[in-house]
Amino acid sequence: MRTPIDLVDKLVADAQRYSGISERTEIPREALRALIHREASRRSSRSSVTAASAFIRS
């Protein structure tokens, strides 16, 4: 799917420098992958804490 987006040049340059990704089109893809990974980890850790709390209370 193609979606036009406006990218801030400074952010793209910083992302390219830190990540080593040279292709501008790859930056948003990698950003989405990182966001999904971070949020999935966050949700997983929340459910683990909830499960651990329930276990401890039993």
Rank of each mutant, 00 (worst) to 15 (best):
Q16W: 01
I5N: 05
V12H: 00
E39S: 04
P4T: 08
I21S: 00
L32G: 04
S48L: 13
L7N: 03
S45I: 13
V12T: 02
S48E: 13
E23V: 06
A15W: 01
A34G: 05
S48P: 03
R57W: 06
A13S: 05
L7K: 02
R42N: 11
L11W: 10
R42Q: 15
R17N: 04
M1S: 15
A52N: 10
S47E: 10
H37Q: 15
I27D: 01
S44M: 05
S47P: 00
P28Q: 01
A31E: 01
Y18D: 06
S41P: 03
P28D: 04
T3S: 08
E23Q: 08
V12S: 03
E30H: 10
R42Y: 09
M1D: 15
R33T: 06
S45M: 13
F55L: 15
L35Y: 14
L11A: 12
V12N: 00
S48R: 11
M1N: 14
T50R: 09
I36A: 13
I21H: 00
R2H: 10
S44V: 00
R33V: 04
L7S: 02
I5T: 06
R2L: 11
K10E: 04
S53K: 12
R24M: 07
R2N: 09
S41K: 11
R38K: 15
A54E: 12
A51Y: 06
H37E: 15
S47W: 09
R33C: 05
I5D: 03
V12K: 00
